[in-house]
């Protein structure tokens, strides 16, 4: 018998996974290159949010969860131990942080490529680009 907390958490997780699936369909089967770029951004966002969800921690008492930032400027050892108990996992956050910025840079590169393709071929539809020669 699962409790309500796990049930709601699983709903959240599965919605994100369905998002992953839908955006994967968009990346693979939509003919427009611009639509592919939009789908790719949604795909990377969903992948990032999955990583963050894995670092989440169950609440033991209500209100006992905190971001991984120590607020006390002069902590004792007990304060640090207590902080390590209530804070969420900082490692996925640190990885996702750089992934978002690099994702934007890569998307910009893809945008420039799409623009160049449009200048030379006059279309952004992959089926028509595949038929063109030269």
């Amino acid at each position: 018998m699962i409790d309500v907390f796990t049930f709601l958490f699983t709903i959240c997780m599965l919605s994100i996974v369905v998002n992953l699936g839908i955006s994967l369909y968009g990346v693979l089967y939509k003919p427009s290159l611009i639509k592919k770029i939009i789908s790719l951004t949604i795909f990377s966002d969903s992948a990032n949010i999955t990583a963050i969800i894995i670092g989440y921690v169950r609440w033991r008492n209500p209100g006992e969860i905190a971001p991984p930032v120590l607020l006390n400027p002069n902590p004792t050892l007990e304060d640090i131990e207590e902080f390590a108990k209530v804070a969420v996992d900082p490692l996925p956050q640190a990885l996702v942080l750089t992934a978002i910025v690099i994702g934007l840079a890569v998307t910009l590169f893809l945008v420039f490529l799409t623009l160049q393709i449009y200048r030379f071929y006059g279309t952004t539809d992959v089926r028509r680009i595949a038929k063109l020669k030269g």
């Binding site: 949010i49 670092g55 989440y56 969420v88 956050q93 996702v96 942080l97």
Partner: peptide, 12 residues
């Protein structure tokens, strides 16, 4: 992201 307690990620 906010509810998952990741303010750094929200800010970026």
């Amino acid at each position: 992201y906010y509810l998952l307690m990741a303010p750094d990620i929200v800010l970026v």
